[in-house]
Nucleic acid binder design. Sequence first.
DNA 1: GTTGTAATTGCAACTAAGTATCAAAAACGT
DNA 2: ACGTTTTTGATACTTAGTTGCAATTACAAC
Lengths: 152, 152
Amino acid sequence: MPMPQTETPGRLQAELMSRGLRMTHQRRTILSVVETAQQHLDASQILKRARKLDPNIDRVTVYRTLGLLKRHGLVDELDLMHLQGEKHFYERRPQRDHIHMACLRCGKIAEFESALFDRLKGQIQRECEFRIVVTRLEIGGYCKHCRPSSAS
Amino acid sequence: MPMPQTETPGRLQAELMSRGLRMTHQRRTILSVVETAQQHLDASQILKRARKLDPNIDRVTVYRTLGLLKRHGLVDELDLMHLQGEKHFYERRPQRDHIHMACLRCGKIAEFESALFDRLKGQIQRECEFRIVVTRLEIGGYCKHCRPSSAS
DNA sequence: GTTGTAATTGCAACTAAGTATCAAAAACGT
DNA sequence: ACGTTTTTGATACTTAGTTGCAATTACAAC
C-alpha cells in the first residue's frame, strides 16, 4: 500500500473534525492506526494496534469508527479476493482510485493505477447516467513469480 | 441479471461432470437453481430454492457446492457493495466480464459490459505480468432515478 | 447387476465477523 | 464549569460460513 512521506499526518482527523464530528481519544487512536498502516489491515488487526496505544479500546468502537470513515468516504473497504477468510481490509481512500491484484498462490497484493480505469469510470458515468461514489476493482490471478505455464 | 434463452440448460452440470466430479442429486438441484436464477442470489436464497426441489438439502451442501463452482471458475461471487449486510451473491460466470453498479439509494443493481474494461484487463496482464483468473468490478453510486443534484 | 472404494452428504457443534441495546462517560459550545 | 448531545464499553446477540465425522451415495470394475 503506498504510504507517501508527503501524506499529511492527521489528515483523517482533520477531515472528520471539519465535518463537525467529535474527536475522541479513541477515534484519534484508531485514525492514527489507519493512517500509518503500511499494509492493508482488517478490523481485528486495527483493534490490536489501537490497543497498543490505548488498551481500553473496544472492538465495537473500531467497527463503529470504520463505519464512520466508510460513510464519509475516507477509507475504502476491500475483500482482497477473500484469500484469508471473510475479513474486510481497509485503506485510506487514495486521491486516484487503484486496482488491487491478489495472487491466488502467494497471496501478495499489488496495486495499479491506470488511465484506462479512469476512462472506464467516465464512460460509466456518461453512458449509464450513474453517479459514481465508490469503486472497487479486485483481480485474482497469478503474479509474475507464481505463474509458471503450469500454474493450476 | 441476463438470462439469455440461448443458454444451454444443464451447462454447469455438464462442465462439472467433464471435470470428473460426481454428480449427485443435491448438486444437480443446486446447480439448476443457480442456472435458472433471474437475479443474484445469496447462499440462503439458493438453499431455500433448492429445498423446494429437495427438502432434505442441507445448507452445508450449498456452501460446499458454491465453493466447488467458485474453484472451478463456473460462478462468480459478488458483494454488490454490501447494500444488504455481509451476504455474498452468486452468478454464473458470463462469457464476457461485466461491471456491477449498485445504487446506494434504491439498491438496484445494473450491469455493464465495456470494451474499455476488456482493454484495461489486457493492460494489466501485459504491464503487470499478472495472469488474470477472476475479476470483480463493483461500483457504488446513484442511478439516474436516484441522483437529484441534491443526492447526499 | 453386484461389489468396493472413494467422494459426498447431513448433522451438530463450532468459529468468525459484525450488530443492537443501553447505562455510563466524554466532548464541546456556551 | 455547565448542560446537552454524542460516543463509548460491556454484554448479548445475529448472521455467515466452517469443521469433524459417521452414514450414505456415486460410479468404476467386475
